[in-house]
Design a protein around this nucleic acid. Structure first.
Length: 111
DNA sequence: GGTGTGACCAGCT
DNA sequence: AAGCTGGCCACAC
């Protein structure tokens, strides 16, 4: 029952780590998967703390519903998020993922 | 223990 | 069409 040791952050990280290489998802999709459909902000906020997590979280694979790299400013370098995505074969133009729907991975549908 | 805050989203103007 | 507003709720102080 209540796994009080599993914080909300931990659950978000767990889902984020499930995102396959070369795929991306949105904050809202993760929120929906966790049953907090209307609270995508919580996911974004949790990702902000992902750098403090012990394990490596592929935070660059999480973007907003338009496929835009809204969280890029929170990476060490503003260009880092785009670099990581491009290194996985995802093209980014103007802070936006090209063919976003093609790379989109929805945990609700896939899991 | 109230208040502020936030890497969003959908709806209204 | 483009900008603004409110709602959503976990967490830190």
């Amino acid at each position: 029952m209540g796994e009080s040791t599993d914080s909300f952050f931990q659950k978000v990280y767990e889902v984020a780590r499930l995102i396959p290489y070369g795929r991306v998802t949105s904050y809202g999709a993760i929120a929906a998967y966790l049953g907090l459909k209307g609270s995508a902000r919580m996911v974004g906020w949790a990702m902000n703390a992902s750098f403090s997590a012990k394990e490596d979280i592929p935070a660059h694979r999480v973007v907003n519903r338009n496929g835009m790299l809204t969280g890029k400013s929170h990476f060490g370098s503003p260009a880092l998020m785009q670099q990581l995505l491009e290194s996985e074969g995802i093209e980014v133009i103007n802070d936006k993922i090209v063919n976003f729907e093609e790379y989109f991975w929805d945990p609700v549908m896939e899991m």
